[in-house]
């Protein structure tokens, strides 16, 4: 019983993280845009949801108390706008340069969340953020079952939509840009605009995950959006197999599962005196999984499926 309840909780977290990984897969796996500021857009989504729906408090600037679904819609819009602004400033950068620039933006977004007290609640964060439809459920257990349906539903929807997109003509052009931007431009494709579109769409998906996460926890704090999360999401995508949406979801499941399982194992088997070293071992394990994947299974657990055009036979 307890295990089932925990597994449902685990599945909720995995489905929310999977949505981020799917968004990153559109940017990196399909288009080759190196976004190292994942956590920034996740934060924008989460904070927008909280700001729009939270109960009014005199010390806050915004007291809209909107219904949760509008909070989610607002999160999508806000993260899209943020991504558009960031994209316009950075999309002409390549590779490592783009990575550092986007990373810096994520740090800046976290600092704004931490310091703009009137809007975000500052370092305290915001408590009592409404959880979608929580009034309809008697016990925490049934509510979590409902929330799993909700988050898994959004995850499936995202998966389905992104699958459609990568197989569309637009998706094929994105891959062409990833493989050889020069050739794509020579064929008359507007590479810069297409990269920007993929970047904005992927970041919007990350914003959705942020809204779902905050809605689930009922609390938002700037310390939930630390840079290390970006690295964790990247590890998930690479381990699962970038370029493949199934791989993105599988990678999230494997890496987060390994993380939770190793934590449990450490708290069970290590003697009390060595417990404090356990956390370091957990992180080393994640690092090892990443390096070993790159060395021995460079495509990830499920590599990219060869996508040849139907006409090419």
């Amino acid at each position: 019983m307890g295990i089932v309840s925990y597994l449902i909780f685990f599945a909720i977290v995995v489905s929310i993280l999977s949505i981020i990984t799917l968004g990153l897969n559109l940017q990196w796996g399909s288009t080759g845009v190196f976004n190292a500021g994942v956590v920034g857009f996740y934060a924008v989504g989460g904070y927008t949801y909280a700001i729009l729906t939270a109960p009014g408090r005199p010390e806050l600037l915004v007291n809209l108390e909107l219904p949760w679904i509008l909070g989610v819609v607002g999160a999508l819009i806000a993260s899209a706008i943020a991504a558009l602004l960031v994209g316009l400033a950075t999309m002409k950068l390549r590779g490592d340069y783009l990575a550092i620039a986007t990373f810096g933006i994520a740090v800046t977004i976290q600092l704004i969340a931490l310091n703009w007290e009137g809007l975000t609640g500052g370092s305290l964060g915001m408590t009592s953020v409404p959880r979608p439809l929580s009034g309809f459920f008697e016990t925490p257990f049934t509510y979590n079952v409902f929330y799993l349906c909700l988050s898994a539903g959004f995850c499936l929807l995202t998966y389905w939509a992104l699958e459609r997109i990568v197989r569309s003509p637009w998706g094929r052009v994105l891959r062409a840009i990833r493989e050889d931007e020069g050739a794509a431009i020579a064929l008359g494709k507007d590479a810069a605009t297409l990269r920007l579109q993929a970047f904005v769409l992927g970041s919007t998906v990350m914003g959705l995950a942020g809204a779902l996460y905050v809605g689930f926890i009922g609390f938002v704090s700037p310390f939930d959006f630390v840079p290390i999360i970006t690295f964790q999401i990247w590890t998930m995508l690479i381990v699962g197999g970038s370029g493949n949406n199934k791989g993105a979801v599988l990678g999230t499941l494997v890496v987060w599962g390994l993380w939770s399982a190793s934590g449990t194992l450490i708290s069970k088997i290590l003697p009390a005196a060595f417990q404090t070293q356990g956390g370091a071992v957990q992180t080393i394990l994640i690092g090892l999984v990443l390096v070993l994947t790159l060395l021995f299974k460079p495509g990830g657990l499920i590599g990219e499926e060869p996508t040849t055009s139907r006409h090419a036979g």
Partner: peptide, 28 residues
């Protein structure tokens, strides 16, 4: 990775992993 002619971003990701390992070894 070099001998496999891995692209430069694969090397970047590998360096993420190496960083995690080296940092936590110091901690240990």
């Amino acid at each position: 990775l070099r001998s496999r002619h891995a692209n430069s971003l694969t090397m970047v990701f590998a360096s993420f992993g190496v960083a995690l390992i080296l940092r936590n070894l110091v901690l240990l």
